[in-house]
Every structure is written in C-alpha cells, then in structure tokens.
C-alpha cells in the first residue's frame, strides 16, 4: 500500500494535536494558584488535596491515620508506586469482588480497605473529586492499555519462601527509623500495622504486592536497594502483624472498631 503525503500530514497534525492537548493541561501548581476554577478543575484540585491530605479533606470516610499519598507516592504520579493515571483501565473485571468495576467503585473500595473506613456512596463529593483527579492524571494515556509502571513491579521467583524472621531483622535495621519499632509510624510517616494502619482486606496485605512496593520504593528515596528476597521477607513480616479486620469477614468486630476508634 502506498502512503500518500496527505496521509502523513494528517497523521502529523493528529499526533501534534494530541501532544499539544497533553501539554495544554495546566499543572496542579498552576491550578492551585488560580483564584477561580470551573467545576472540573476545582474537583481536580479537591481530588489532589484529598490524595495528599486525606485526613483533613476526606475524613468522613477514613478510619485510620493513613494518607492516599502514603502508597500512591508523589500524589499518584510516581511509576511503580501505584500511580493513579489509570482511568483508561476502567471499567474492568476484578477478582477481588468478582464484579465489573468502574473507577468509582475502585476508589470507594480504597476507602473501605486501605483507609479502613466506610465505603462512600457513589455520588459522594470525595469520590467524584478523586475520579476527576485520576482522569486529569490519565490525560494522554491510551484507553485500555496499561500505563508504564502501573501498580507495583511483580518480583521474580527467588526460589525461597519468604522468611518473616529475617524480615524482622531487615525491618528493624532499615524501616523502623521511620515506621517505628512497633509499626506505629512517626510524624509524617505512616503506620504499617496496628489499628491505625490498613486492614486485612487491603491490597497491601498481599505479600507479593507489598513486596513489589517495598522493593521498588522503600526505604523512601532509596528504592530498589533491598534484594528481592529481603523485600519479600519484610512483606511477610508485616503480613503477620495485628491490623484491623477485613470488613467482609468480621462484621461485629468491624462495628466495634469503628465505634471505638
């Protein structure tokens, strides 16, 4: 097939406009300085504020002392640290609940599991704002395709079982200065177990996923310094600790936790 120059020109114009559209989107810093924003951008900014300061901006549905950006590092813009530019991936089927999930349900489940709180209603302003922020971050991504660095890296099989005892040693040496010896967290650093951490239904409670996150990003600012085996060991150690119950199993315990907390 012969490709005419006209086609090339059209393709060129199309790609350049696509690139243009991406550049044209104002940055969060620019948006924060605007005195007035329309409904969409004000929701984007609100979503950004929820991600970076969940405790003040979405406290209604939050049950622990984490922030979204504790896992979605750099407000969900960092590759291999659960980046939030994934609007094009939804809706999709997920094994976690055996349903077709829209981005709204995905966000609501974050509140329920990772934030150990209450599932917000579909039309809660917080959910809509985070959806708007996710949409904003996803500008320029290809629909249905996985963005580069989505989620956390899957660690290769090391050939050994994860060893929690070894994980404890690594944790005390490398992690406890920020996350505390008993996982209670320090100022600005999130707790990793205990009643103020994510619950047993959260994705971080999965050894493989947590290990991938730890290997790629921990210790903060010095990611990929642990070996794969060390990351798996630490992950297994965290997995053994006490944390809030899975809201799908222990309903009564969950109620008590909420009423007490």
């Amino acid at each position: 097939m012969k490709i005419g120059p006209g086609f090339l020109l059209v393709a060129l114009v199309l790609t350049s406009t696509a690139a243009h559209a991406q550049q044209n989107q104002p940055s969060i810093e620019q948006l924060l300085e605007e005195p007035f924003l329309d409904d969409y951008y004000s929701n984007v900014v609100y979503g950004y504020e929820i991600i970076t300061d969940t405790q003040t901006n979405a406290s209604r549905y939050v049950g622990n002392s984490l922030q979204c950006s504790n896992c979605h590092l750099q407000a969900g813009t960092l590759e291999d640290a659960l980046p939030l530019n994934v609007a094009g991936m939804y809706p999709k089927w997920r094994a976690k609940n055996g349903k077709r999930n829209g981005i709204g349900l995905r966000i609501r489940e974050c509140f329920l599991y990772s934030m150990d709180g209450i599932m917000p209603p579909e039309d809660a302003p917080e959910v809509l704002a985070v959806s708007a922020y996710v949409t904003y971050l996803s500008q320029g991504q290809v629909m249905g395709a996985e963005p580069v660095g989505r989620g956390v890296p899957t660690l290769p099989d090391t050939g050994y079982d994860p060893n929690p005892a070894n994980g404890r040693a690594v944790y005390l040496a490398q992690c406890s200065s920020c996350h505390g010896e008993r996982g209670e967290g320090t100022a600005g650093m999130p707790p990793v177990w205990g009643l103020n951490a994510y619950n047993k239904g959260a994705g971080m409670n999965d050894i493989q996923q947590a290990a991938g996150f730890i290997w790629a990003n921990m210790p903060l600012g010095n990611g990929k310094s642990l070996t794969h085996q060390q990351a798996l060991d630490v992950s297994a150690y965290l997995n053994l600790q006490v944390r809030p119950a899975d809201p799908r199993d222990s309903k009564f315990l969950k109620l008590l936790e909420h009423l007490l907390n």
Partner: peptide, 22 residues
C-alpha cells in the same frame, strides 16, 4: 442499620453511612 451491618458486610449492602464528622 446495626442489625443489617451485623449480618451483611458493607461491600455487599452498599449502604450509605453518615461517616465521621470532623
């Protein structure tokens, strides 16, 4: 509501709760 929450988990009931008030 407490009775319902005691028998079925929230992901199943999809009930809307008041939530914490700051």
């Amino acid at each position: 509501g407490l009775l319902v929450a005691f028998i079925w988990p929230q992901p199943h009931t999809e009930l809307e709760y008041l939530g914490r008030m700051p």
